[in-house]
Structures are given as structure tokens and as C-alpha cells.
Design a protein around this nucleic acid. Sequence first.
DNA 1: ATGATGTTGTTTCCTAGTCAACTAAATTCG
DNA 2: CGAATTTAGTTGACTAGGAAACAACATCAT
Lengths: 153, 153
Amino acid sequence: MANRKTTSALDEHLGYWLRMVSNHVSNGFARKLEGHGATVAEWVLLRELFDVEALAPSRLAERMGMTRGAISKLADRLTEKKLVARADDPDDQRAHRLSLTVAGRELVPELAALADENDASFFADLTALERANIEAILRKIVVRRGLKDIPVS
Amino acid sequence: MANRKTTSALDEHLGYWLRMVSNHVSNGFARKLEGHGATVAEWVLLRELFDVEALAPSRLAERMGMTRGAISKLADRLTEKKLVARADDPDDQRAHRLSLTVAGRELVPELAALADENDASFFADLTALERANIEAILRKIVVRRGLKDIPVS
DNA sequence: ATGATGTTGTTTCCTAGTCAACTAAATTCG
DNA sequence: CGAATTTAGTTGACTAGGAAACAACATCAT
């Protein structure tokens, strides 16, 4: 037993490699979105609204793993851009309902194409088996640990 | 050819699952670090300095994938906490050299233990084979795409 | 050696989040 | 019913980063 345990290096953690790849994927996507005047958070919000008639900010906050404050400001920006509309909830004087404008609805498929492209190009180096493997493993972690939203930070 | 292509959902992208898991790992680690008064960026900087006598802020910026401005402020916080010391570079009047203080050097193994624990607990659900697989796949992406730093954003 | 160019680190301004306090409205319960 | 509590959304103070301008110094080409 000659060696004391040595302080582990950054890259000895699986989390390190995960963060490296994940941040590059998100970053690449963010750069692609920039060209269309959108951010990742904006894309996610728009996509969430896409297959629903309308949604309350609070629900979006839960689904997106952001605070209500953040959603409030995000919605401000998107209404400013005329991509999202705020309407009063007829059943609850406090509540709002966010929905896509026509322009917003038209933008979603365009951004979805960028997302597809980004994902495809990033994982193009992998074999079909590798892609299936990594997805299965990630899903397993999500299920086992009961992860439900994506914390932004 | 009955069906038009449908707008892809968020979770149809590998990047989605990657981000979900990666953000949870980082977030969990951040919460653990909080109890020790440190942030993830601080941990990374301290760990980078750990196996080197001293390093210029610019080098750290490259290695950490952050701007020099960000490193400047990060170094401010760490010197404020007496974990890092700034010294003039004798060979270059512009340059500085950052190094760990005794307290900083003592803190690193403590935080490394947290990192180990966080990583282990997070991937505990996986089999050894799954862990080996995901690491190999992530490393392959890093190599193939020539990723060298971790963009923070 | 000197003038152009490049590099180092800091600083200012901006962005997009968090957190906590707040207002108004809804709900619960005694 | 009416008071206490909960919920919805906004706001303000704060944080950690990026981008770009900057001053000081170094390097390089003549």
C-alpha cells in the first residue's frame, strides 16, 4: 500500500465529459439560432407553445425548469418580438395565457430544422448503435433519478 | 406519401437528453459546493492550479473556455477569499501568475471528494458496462470534433 | 531605434438568469 | 360570510458571464 489516494482530476469524472459535449452542443445550437434572432430559451418556450393552444406562464416555468420571474421576462421579450401573445385567463383574473402568434407559429418549424441539423451534425460521427446506446443510457438516468425538467443553470 | 414531415419535438434530439442529464449533474454539484462556499467555476480554476506551480490568467482562460474578462473577475473573487494569490510575472511586466495559497491547496482535495461523490451517486444506477460505454462515446465525440475546452455558457 | 502590430489583464456595459418581496386574486376553513 | 392562506404574475436587487474598448507592455520589421 505504497500510494496515498491522489486528488482526482477533472476529466476523471463522467460529468466532465458530459458537460463538455453538452455545452458544445448547446453552444453550437445557440450560434445557429443567433442567425435567426432567437435564443435557446426562446426556442424552448416557442416549441412548448407549438402543440398547445395556450399555456400559463407558471406551467411553462415548471416544464422549462425556470423560475416564474425568468418566464415573465422571457415572455416580455417574445411578445416584444411579436412571436407570443399574452391574454387574460377568463376563468382567473390573476392568470395569463401565453400563445403563439402567427409569426411565432411560422417560426417554430424553421427553428426545429436548425435543431435537427445541429443534432444530426453533432452526432454524425457515431454509429447507429452508439447513438441508440447513449440515448438509452441517458434515458435510464432520467428515469431512475426521476428528472423531469432541465435546470437552466 | 400521405404524411408531411412533422415539426420535431424537443425530446427527439439527443442533445435534449444530454442537456437534461448534464445540467442536473452540474446543478447537483453546484449545490454540494455551495455548502463549502464555492462555485463550479471556482472549483475548476482551483483544480487547474492544483497540479501546477503557477499559471497565467490567459492560460486559464484558454483551458477553461472562458474569456479573460471572466477569469479576471473569478480571480478577484478567489483572491478575496484568500484561496488564490496573484503575483507579477518577473519576465513580463504585463503578465500575472496565479497560484494557490496554502488554504486554496488544502481546499482542493476536499472539493475533489465532493466531485467524486457527486459523480458516483449520479451514475450509480448504471452498470459498469454502461458507464464505460457512455464515456467511450463521449470521448469519441470530443476527439472527432476536436473539442478542447468546455464553453461555459 | 523606432514605429507598427500583437498580447496581457482590467474595465465598462450588456444579458439572462436567480431570489425574494410584492400586489392582486382565488381558495380554504372556522 | 369573512379572515387566513395560497397562488399568479411582476418587479427590483443581485450574480456570473460575454463582448469590446482600453492602457501598458512586448515583439518585430525595417
